[in-house]
């Protein structure tokens, strides 16, 4: 799959933003006044900035409001609704902390639940696709949730929570990479089922439909991305998990904490890039490529 920067930025930053909002809503930290304003501003910049980035890949962003209508079937529609509801609920909760120094506890919990729901709906947009076997497995939502909660805990300065969640996320990520490499073969979709010609003999793509490229090939076939996959996986593990955990476990300093956040973001961006670049869509079979 083509690793579009808008979608990588969107999933990374909105994941972190909603992760931080989850811990804020849950009341793990309850800042008040100007300090609460800064905490919520950081969370909203990440969450809303990510959501806005996602509209950049739309052909008609001006029609985005229509996307709230099909929640009955569409995970993308559900994500839109969950994100807006969560942002509104937690804005009221945040306003209570900033202006009245009062946590509206129940509202915070509803918002926290909404933040989790938003990240889950985002992950289901990818998980639901049978056409991309690497994504179509339970590790996808689990990983999105653990990364969001772990990154959120990191932003919220919750060392123990963060370390535990990041270790769990790293473990799930390793497992997802391990199983992901076999998913396409296990899916049962191959040249034979794609063409139905397997009864005659071995099928191979002989001539593509056109001499040039096309939308499908640009969007779904990204072979070059896998060349350095192993190295990038190591880099993502190092930046996303190992360095932040080490920086958190050594005696606290604000500089180390900031470095831990930056390193984690760089790591998540790398593994999100791999999430797309390594994913193979079944339509590639018709082109003899994946």
């Amino acid at each position: 799959m083509h690793p579009a920067p808008s979608v990588i930025i969107f999933t990374t930053f909105s994941g972190l933003g909603f992760g931080l909002l989850f811990w804020l809503g849950l009341g793990v930290i309850t800042p008040t006044g100007i300090s609460a304003f800064i905490w919520f501003a950081i969370a909203y910049v990440f969450a809303v900035g990510g959501l806005l980035a996602s509209t950049f890949h739309l052909g008609h962003p001006e029609r985005a409001l229509k996307a709230f209508s099909q929640w009955k079937t569409s995970w993308l529609s559900r994500e839109g609704i969950a994100s807006v509801v969560t942002l509104i609920v937690l804005a009221i909760y945040g306003a209570g902390l900033v202006f009245a120094s009062t946590p509206f506890v129940v509202l915070g919990w509803i918002g926290a639940l909404g933040a989790i729901a938003t990240v889950f709906t985002t992950s289901m947009i990818y998980t639901q696709l049978k056409t991309v076997p690497r994504w179509h497995q339970p590790t996808t939502p689990l990983l999105f949730l653990l990364l969001s909660l772990g990154g959120g805990a990191l932003l919220a300065g919750q060392v123990t929570l963060c370390v535990v969640l990041l270790i769990a996320a790293a473990a799930v990520q390793l497992f997802a990479w391990y199983t992901g490499d076999k998913r396409f073969a296990q899916s049962g979709t191959d040249m034979q089922t794609a063409t139905g010609l397997g009864d005659i003999g071995t099928v191979r793509a002989f001539e593509p439909p056109h001499t040039g490229t096309n939308y499908l090939m640009r969007e779904f076939i990204y072979v070059v991305g896998r060349k350095h996959a192993r190295k990038l996986q190591a880099i993502a593990l190092l930046l996303g998990f190992i360095i932040p955990i080490i920086l958190l476990l050594i005696p606290f300093s604000h500089i180390f904490a900031a470095l831990a956040v930056l390193s984690h973001i760089a790591g998540v961006l790398t593994l999100r890039w791999l999430f797309f670049a390594q994913a193979e869509h079944v339509v590639g079979l018709y082109y003899g490529k994946r």
Partner: peptide, 27 residues
């Protein structure tokens, strides 16, 4: 007139039957 050009339907189609038009921005 309702299509936002998100491309998700093309992702969901196993057959490559849908193409986002680069000029019109609709599927």
């Amino acid at each position: 007139s309702d299509c936002i050009g998100c491309g998700l339907c093309a992702w969901a189609c196993p057959y490559g039957a849908r193409e986002l038009d680069a000029d019109a921005g609709v599927m």
